[in-house]
Structure formats: structure tokens, C-alpha cells
């Protein structure tokens, strides 16, 4: 038994040190592509760290977003940057001592906060376990995210919308020349896309009883769309105008409508227990759709042209 504990400690130590070292390397890197690859590797190790912290829900989200979307998003962004001479400094070197001082202060503050944390806090898990029966789901994480603190999730959906508004304000579609797609990529995408859609549905459904839910499912669905876009499917041509906007607001709109209804009845987002399960499922389906389309639209990096706008 003793040896097992030691091995677990060694594993965790190696994982923690590896993460710190990776973070340092990727921040230090002058080569942006190298930094992107290191960041993808960082996400991988971070998912393992969440597993070790007993948070499989977060590990799932990290895997879906870190492994699938962040890498693709950063690669696409990197491709749009004008190539830069490597020897050129990234920023004004003179301001660096001020930056270091500020970072030192932040680090000291964080250290103080961690140090002053209570040794053992009871937390809210007992209270959640007591009220789980009335939440409509069996997974405590889903119960917190969509029932007990549903407004957090509502605001998170709004944050995603704001991010997309920011990207759309940068401009509309520019014509880009792409290389023709080979048979291998086409086959790969044809295999993966239906599986990705299936797994997204599975994660959405599993979220009621086990780790999973709208964010993970949405991210997987978005990965499917990103793959299709990369393989030259003209998704941006199919999803334009009103259809696109409806899908983007489906999640937030359902949430807001439900918030309004519950506000009239009793309290903000307090569902009647007998309908809670169905309402949560409805919210999750709408949110999954919106999250997926928003993330895919973020990957596109520009506002798709509507039919009325000239080419």
C-alpha cells in the first residue's frame, strides 16, 4: 500500500512539474508555431491534471476544447498573421522590468491567498447532495450548472456571444485560395464527422447522470464543423443570414425565456421539481447547438457574407 501511495505522489509531482515547465517554455518561445504546439501539449497534460484532481467533468471539457478547438483556432489565427522576422523582438524590451514587478506582485498575492485558505472547508457538496433529488438530474455538476446556479451558465453563453460579436466586428469574408482536398482527408472527415455528432449526442445525454453536458457536447459538435470547414465543405455558405443567427441565439434565448417565466412564477431560474429534468434537457439541447455554432463561427474568423451583400 505504501508503495502505491508513493507512486501516485511521484506521478502527480511529475505532472505538476511538467505543466510548470511547459508553461514556462511556451511563454518564453519566440517561435509562435512552437508556442502553439506547446500549448496543445499543455492542454493535454492539463486534462490529466484535472483527472488527478477528481474533476472528470472539467477533464472532458478540457479534452474537447483543448485537443479539438484551441489548436485549430490558434493555427488558423497564426496562418492569418503576416510572417515576421524571428530575430525581431516581440515587444518593447524597456517596459519589461515594470512587467516583471507587476507579475511578482500578482504571484505574491496569489501565494498569500493560497496560504490563507482554510485547511479544510466543508464546501457545499453536502447541501447539493441533499437537494439533488429535486434538481431533475443525477449528476451534481449538471445540477449546479443548469439548475442551482443556472444564471452562471446563462452568462457564460452571453460571453461566448460577445466573443463572436468581437470577431464579427473585424470584417466580412475575404476570398481565400485553398489547396484542393485529397482523398485521404476526405475519407478521414467522412469517417470522423458522423462519429463526432454521435459522441456529442452521447455526451449531452450522459450529462444527466455522469460527466458530460452542453459545453462538452457543443465543443465536440463544433469540432465536427471545423473539420468540415477545413476539408473544404462550404458550411459558411449554407449557414448564413437568419438560419445562422437563430442557431446562435437558440441557447441564450431559451435560457432568457425560461428565466422570464420562472421570474413571473417564483424566482429566477427556479424550476418546478416535477418538470426540472425536461427543462434542463431542453436548455442543454439549445445551448449545445448555440455553443457549437458559435465556436465554429469563431474558428471561421470573419462574419459570413449574407446573400444580400455583394461578393
Amino acid at each position: 500500500m505504501e508503495k502505491v501511495t508513493l507512486l501516485i505522489m511521484l506521478f502527480d509531482l511529475l505532472l505538476g512539474l511538467g505543466l510548470l515547465w511547459l508553461a514556462w517554455q511556451l511563454l518564453e518561445s519566440r517561435n509562435l508555431f512552437k508556442a502553439v504546439v506547446l500549448f496543445v501539449a499543455f492542454g493535454l497534460l492539463m486534462a490529466l491534471a484535472w483527472v488527478r484532481l477528481d474533476a472528470p467533468d472539467v477533464a472532458l471539457a478540457e479534452a474537447a476544447i483543448g485537443a479539438g478547438l484551441t489548436g485549430a483556432l490558434l493555427m488558423a489565427a497564426l496562418a492569418k498573421l503576416p510572417s515576421r522576422d524571428k530575430s525581431e523582438p516581440l515587444a518593447d524590451e524597456k517596459g519589461h522590468w515594470l512587467l516583471r514587478l507587476a507579475l511578482l506582485l500578482v504571484a505574491a498575492g496569489l501565494g498569500y491567498v493560497v496560504h490563507s485558505l482554510p485547511e479544510s472547508a466543508p464546501g457545499l457538496s453536502a447541501e447539493i447532495a441533499n437537494n439533488l433529488a429535486s434538481s431533475g438530474v443525477n449528476n451534481p455538476v449538471t445540477a449546479v450548472l443548469l439548475n442551482f446556479r443556472g444564471y452562471d451558465t446563462l452568462l457564460e453563453l452571453m460571453v461566448l456571444m460577445l466573443a463572436l460579436l468581437g470577431v464579427w466586428s473585424l470584417g466580412i469574408e475575404r476570398s481565400t485560395r485553398e489547396e484542393p482536398v485529397g482523398p485521404v482527408l476526405t475519407t478521414l472527415v467522412q469517417f470522423l464527422t458522423p462519429l463526432l455528432i454521435l459522441v456529442a449526442a452521447y455526451l449531452l445525454w450522459a450529462g444527466a447522470d455522469a460527466p458530460g453536458g452542453a459545453f462538452q457536447a457543443g465543443a465536440v459538435l463544433a469540432a465536427a464543423m471545423v473539420l468540415l470547414l477545413l476539408a473544404g465543405w462550404p458550411l459558411q455558405g449554407l449557414l448564413t443570414g437568419v438560419a445562422l443567427r437563430l442557431m446562435l441565439v437558440a441557447g441564450p434565448a431559451t435560457f432568457v425565456a425560461l428565466a422570464g417565466l420562472t421570474l413571473l412564477d417564483a424566482q429566477l431560474l427556479a424550476y418546478p421539481p416535477q418538470h426540472a429534468g425536461k427543462l434542463i434537457l431542453l436548455l442543454e439541447v439549445a445551448a449545445t447547438l448555440s455553443i457549437a455554432v458559435t465556436l465554429a463561427a469563431l474558428f471561421l474568423g470573419y462574419r459570413p457574407r449574407t446573400n444580400k451583400e455583394p461578393g
Partner: peptide, 12 residues
């Protein structure tokens, strides 16, 4: 998920 999404970054 890792197995499913392994290809996305590389394809990008």
C-alpha cells in the same frame, strides 16, 4: 474524446 479529436489540430 482525445482519440476522436486527435486529427482536428493536425488537419488544421
Amino acid at each position: 474524446l482525445f482519440a476522436l479529436l486527435a486529427a482536428v489540430t493536425a488537419v488544421a
